[in-house]
C-alpha cells in the first residue's frame, strides 16, 4: 500500500512538471507580447526590451520554466535593485497586470472557489444519492417519475441559465440576498450566516446539474445491485429489507460513485468559471478567465492551470486509496 502511494505520488509530480512545461510552451505561441502590453504610451523598442527582461521573458521557454520551478521551492525575486519584489516560496510568479505575487492573488481567490466547490459537493451528493435511492426503491411509481423530471430539468438546464434565473428571482425579485452583498467574502467560521448568504445560491446553482446526474447514476446502480446474487443471499439469510438496502446494496452501489464524485469535486477546485462569473465570486475561475481573455497574465494562467491539474491528480490518488478501503478486491491486487 505504501509503495503504491509513493509510486503514485512520484507519477503525480512528474505529470505536474510536464503539465507546467506544456503551459509555458503554449503561452509562448500566443501572438500577444506581454512586454508590449505593460509598456506605457510612450513606448520605445528599448523600453519593450527592458520590460521583457524585467518580466523574465528574455530567456528561452525552458529557462523560464526552470526559474518557475526553482521559485516554487525557493521563492523568487522579480525586478532589479530599487524596484525588486520578493515573493516567498511557494512563489507562483509575479502578475504583470496586478503587480502582486501570484501566490497572494491565488490565496485570496481560493477560499471562494473552495467554499463554492465544497458547498455544491455536499448539496449534490446528499440530494443526488437520496433521490437516486428513493427512485430506485419506488421504481415506476410517482416518486420515481418526479425524480426523473428533476433529472431531466437538471441535466438540460445549463448553469448559465439557472444561475441567471436564480439571480433574477431570488436576489433581485424576492430580495432574499442583498444585491450589494453578492460576492462578498465572509469567514464561514466566524460569520456562518454571512457565508451562507453569499454561497448558498451559487452552490445550489452549481449543484443542480451534478445532483441530477448523480440521481440517475445512483438509481441505476442501486437497481443493478439489487438484482445481484449476493443481495438474494442476504435476503435468504433472513435479513430485513432495511438492513439489505443500507448495508448490502448501498455499499456496493455507491462504491463507483466515490470515483466520479472525487473527480468532479477536483474539477471544481480549479474554479467554476460560469457560476463564479454570475454571482460575482472572485474565485480561481474568474481569476483565470480574466487572465486568459483580458490581461494575458502568464504567471496567473500558469498558476491557476497548474493548481487545477494538481487537484485533479491528487484527488485521483485519494480516490484510488479510498477505493482500496472500500473494495477489498482492489486492496490485494
Amino acid at each position: 500500500m505504501l509503495t503504491f502511494v509513493a509510486r503514485r505520488l512520484a507519477y503525480t509530480i512528474i505529470l505536474l512538471a510536464i503539465v507546467s512545461l506544456t503551459i509555458f510552451f503554449i503561452f509562448d505561441l500566443i501572438p500577444v507580447d506581454p512586454a508590449r502590453l505593460v509598456c506605457s504610451k510612450q513606448c520605445t523598442p528599448s523600453l519593450v526590451e527592458a520590460n521583457r527582461h524585467r518580466l523574465g521573458l528574455d530567456v528561452s521557454v525552458l529557462e523560464q520554466w526552470w526559474r518557475f520551478i526553482v521559485g516554487l521551492f525557493a521563492g523568487r525575486t522579480f525586478g532589479e535593485e530599487g524596484i525588486a519584489i520578493t515573493c516567498a516560496a511557494p512563489a507562483l510568479g509575479y502578475s504583470f497586470s496586478r503587480h502582486e505575487c501570484v501566490t497572494t492573488i491565488v490565496a485570496e481567490a481560493f477560499p471562494f472557489t473552495l467554499s463554492l466547490a465544497l458547498g455544491a459537493f455536499v448539496l449534490w451528493l446528499s440530494v443526488g444519492i437520496s433521490l437516486g435511492v428513493l427512485s430506485a426503491r419506488k421504481k415506476g411509481k410517482f416518486a420515481d417519475r418526479a425524480a426523473s423530471v428533476f433529472v431531466l430539468v437538471g441535466t438540460s438546464l445549463p448553469t448559465f441559465i439557472t444561475g441567471i434565473l436564480v439571480v433574477l428571482f431570488i436576489v433581485l425579485q424576492f430580495n432574499l440576498v442583498n444585491p450589494l452583498e453578492l460576492g462578498n467574502w465572509h469567514n464561514p467560521f466566524t460569520e456562518p450566516l454571512g457565508w451562507l448568504q453569499t454561497f448558498f445560491f451559487p452552490c445550489a446553482t452549481l449543484a443542480l446539474a451534478y445532483a441530477a446526474t448523480y440521481t440517475r447514476f445512483t438509481r441505476s446502480n442501486v437497481i443493478e445491485t439489487s438484482s445481484e446474487d449476493f443481495i438474494r443471499t442476504a435476503r435468504a439469510k433472513g435479513l430485513t429489507e432495511k438492513v439489505i438496502l443500507r448495508k448490502h446494496t448501498l455499499r456496493a452501489a455507491l462504491a463507483p460513485i466515490v470515483t466520479i464524485a472525487g473527480l468532479d469535486f477536483a474539477g471544481l477546485l480549479g474554479g467554476a468559471i460560469i457560476t463564479e462569473g454570475i454571482f460575482g465570486l472572485n474565485g480561481l475561475g474568474r481569476l483565470s478567465i480574466k487572465a486568459v481573455t483580458q490581461t494575458y497574465d502568464l504567471p496567473i494562467i500558469v498558476a491557476t492551470t497548474l493548481i487545477a491539474s494538481a487537484f485533479v491528480l491528487i484527488m485521483n490518488l485519494i480516490v484510488d486509496i479510498a477505493y482500496a478501503f472500500i473494495d477489498p478486491r482492489v486492496r490485494t491486487s
Binding site: E228, D229, F230, R232, T233, A234, R235, A236, K237, G238, T240, H248, R251, A252, A255, I326, D327, P328, R329
Partner: peptide, 25 residues
C-alpha cells in the same frame, strides 16, 4: 416468512462467487 429464512429454512446457490458479498469478510 422472513423470520423463517435462515432459521428454519436456508438456501445455497449455484455460483458461490457472486452469491457472497464481495466487500465483507
Amino acid at each position: 416468512v422472513r423470520r423463517l429464512r435462515g432459521k428454519s429454512m436456508s438456501m445455497i446457490f449455484q455460483d458461490p462467487m457472486s452469491a457472497l458479498h464481495p466487500f465483507f469478510t
